[in-house]
Computed example of a mutant assay.
Amino acid sequence: MKKEITLEKVISSAPDLILYAAPIMIGLALLEFYFSWKTKRDLYEKKDFLTSLTIGLVYILQGLVTKSIMFGLVLWVYNSVSWSIPVNWFTSILCFVVLDFCRYWAHRYGHEVNFLWATHVTHHNSEKYNLSTSFRLSWTQQIKVIFFIPISFLGFHPVVFFICHQIAVLYQFWIHTELIDRMPKWFSFIFVTPSHHRVHHGRNENYLDKNYGSTFIIWDRMFGTFEPETEKSIYGIIDQPKHFNPVKHVFHVWVDIFKNMRRAGSLKKALWIFVAPPSSLEKNPGKKNA
């Protein structure tokens, strides 16, 4: 019979890689900031950088609490099933691949469903694209843990999942840069590169809702959401905020959703607004156009 695992054991057995890597990532972002200033590349805007840094630091501090809730749910599912997958190098790689597949769909639905977009928009509402953009992780994105339940249900060990999840998040850091042009073709066919992810962050018409891959770009090739970089990206979102307030950057879509729901007129319409595509969301409901 499978031995039950406690949350304390998972947390103590799996190092917090993101917490350890944070000073290195901040240092590299500062180095890129300095290089941008020195070479007049205009990759950074000071207020935008401080907004990204603030959002990222709060996310890390918040994670000290929410991590227990998130992985507690994953652990509960794992302990609820009677089967488990043995831990070895092969199953660890397999867990990472399955996790990346789940991340693809979590990311894709994060662009296609209002309440999930509210948890993700923070990552997109900067008109700059640099290493600090990777710090823009919404303080409400833990909702997406629902997409990772299948990993525990399949029987992958929670410690393996915890480590794979952190590696996947850390991989995202280096692809947020304009300083790396193209990677070798064989690498770009399999893995997400800065070129691929610049497309994802672009609001160019042909770039919208493309390249959702986290580590592997093969999911986009398989499911028809791949788009190569053919022109310079215009960064930001369609309804781009014109401020640098980190709290508003995190919650502005949530505010729009609940305002729309309040004016919906019926529970059915309100629920539909919650799960409808972001394109259906009325901005500043109640305001009349001049």
Rank of each mutant, 00 (worst) to 15 (best):
1 M>S: 12
2 K>S: 06
2 K>F: 09
4 E>P: 00
5 I>A: 06
8 E>L: 13
10 V>A: 08
10 V>R: 06
11 I>S: 03
12 S>M: 09
12 S>G: 06
15 P>S: 09
16 D>F: 15
16 D>C: 06
19 L>R: 15
21 A>Q: 08
22 A>D: 11
23 P>T: 11
26 I>H: 07
26 I>L: 14
27 G>A: 15
31 L>P: 00
35 F>N: 11
39 T>H: 14
41 R>H: 12
46 K>H: 13
49 F>N: 03
50 L>C: 10
51 T>M: 14
52 S>L: 02
53 L>E: 08
57 L>A: 10
59 Y>R: 14
66 T>P: 00
68 S>M: 13
69 I>Q: 04
69 I>R: 01
72 G>F: 08
73 L>I: 15
74 V>K: 00
77 V>F: 12
77 V>P: 09
79 N>M: 10
80 S>Y: 14
80 S>H: 14
81 V>F: 14
81 V>A: 10
82 S>M: 06
83 W>P: 04
85 I>E: 10
86 P>K: 15
89 W>I: 15
97 V>E: 05
109 Y>M: 12
111 H>P: 04
111 H>W: 00
112 E>I: 01
116 L>W: 08
117 W>Y: 13
119 T>V: 09
119 T>C: 13
122 T>L: 01
122 T>S: 13
125 N>R: 13
126 S>P: 06
127 E>F: 08
131 L>W: 06
132 S>K: 02
133 T>W: 01
136 R>C: 07
138 S>R: 01
138 S>Q: 04
148 F>E: 03
153 F>Q: 00
153 F>G: 02
154 L>Q: 03
155 G>V: 12
157 H>P: 05
160 V>E: 01
160 V>M: 09
173 F>R: 07
178 E>H: 08
179 L>R: 13
181 D>R: 15
181 D>K: 15
185 K>F: 06
187 F>L: 14
189 F>E: 07
191 F>R: 02
193 T>W: 03
194 P>W: 09
194 P>C: 10
197 H>F: 07
197 H>W: 04
198 R>V: 09
198 R>I: 09
199 V>S: 03
200 H>K: 07
202 G>C: 05
203 R>H: 11
204 N>K: 10
208 L>I: 15
208 L>E: 10
208 L>R: 13
209 D>A: 06
211 N>V: 05
211 N>C: 03
212 Y>G: 02
213 G>H: 04
217 I>Y: 05
220 D>I: 08
227 E>H: 13
227 E>S: 11
230 T>Q: 13
232 K>R: 13
235 Y>D: 04
235 Y>C: 03
243 H>R: 00
244 F>K: 09
250 V>Y: 02
254 W>L: 02
256 D>P: 00
257 I>T: 02
258 F>D: 05
259 K>N: 11
265 G>C: 04
272 W>F: 14
272 W>T: 12
272 W>I: 06
272 W>L: 14
277 P>K: 01
277 P>N: 14
279 S>D: 12
280 S>L: 11
281 L>M: 03
282 E>D: 07
283 K>R: 15
283 K>P: 00
284 N>S: 11
288 K>W: 00
289 N>D: 14
